[in-house]
Design a protein around this nucleic acid. Structure first.
Lengths: 131, 131
DNA sequence: ACAATTGTACTAGGATATTAGGACAATGCG
DNA sequence: CGCATTGTCCTAATATCCTAGTACAATTGT
């Protein structure tokens, strides 16, 4: 279900966390969807159940999942305040990339142009997918 | 010469590395400029010479510096392919942010505005640090 | 050639991060 | 209620990271 690479240097729990987060934010895991149990996923990935639990817990704290003991872990519905929280994350990511971009010699204009270019890319892609 | 913050949580060597990288890419350290010796900088920053050496070595591997044993460490001309590689990386990160932002309901204009806001933030900060 | 100066290799201590094992707690369902 | 299933707490072993100390190697310049 989630493919990981133990030799990538990136900790397993981080890989898993980002995979799940991505599937949630991209909508490939719809709100309400029940995720595998920590033990199922642990066996599947050949890791410890606690490692999976850590991922679920952190994603819950960050507002992406909702875990109910005895029942399971579910993708959370996106409410208004939650949307705000995730927007904060986008801002955070933007801040990081601006810092890095400027550090690497990008000018402000180049950064903005690059952003616009990526926006156009995705727009074009959307248009092709659903004309 | 390089101001660091031991309590920032960011490892010393990383802080130093990014400072130097920034000064190189921004042109404040011109190609050919000789950097302080590892011992000079170590004394100045009250850290170990090996820590400085690590920074110099990594920046050399990444193409920003050129170190010659017995002589010193010099700023290198940042080549086109290096710049292109960095650029690809930033583009890739931007693509992910755009995807996530649009999924959260950002409009194109909001994304661009948010990026500009972050640019201004950092720009102001830079101005305070080195007017 | 020699001595001073440069960066580097090797090592290790200490801190932090990552993963795992086993017992526990909350929930659902017969 | 009783049992199975769920996530979680506590603990500990292990790995990794960061920094420093010391000795070494390459270069420079006299």
């Amino acid at each position: 279900m989630f493919q990981l690479d133990p030799r990538s240097g990136v900790p397993i729990y981080l890989q898993l966390k980002e995979r799940i987060r991505h599937q949630v934010t991209s909508g490939r895991l719809a709100p309400g969807t029940r995720l595998p149990t920590v033990r199922e996923l642990a066996v599947d990935l050949r890791i410890n159940a606690n490692t999976v639990s850590r991922v679920y817990s952190e994603l819950q704290r960050e507002g992406y999942l909702e875990t109910r003991q005895g029942s399971g872990t579910y993708v959370r519905e996106v409410g208004r305040d939650l949307r705000e929280a995730r927007r904060d994350r986008v801002r955070e990511l933007l801040r990081e990339i601006v810092a890095e971009g400027l550090n690497l010699g990008y000018t402000q204009e180049e950064l903005i142009a690059a952003l616009k270019a990526e926006i156009d890319r995705i727009h074009d892609k959307d248009r092709r997918d659903s004309p």
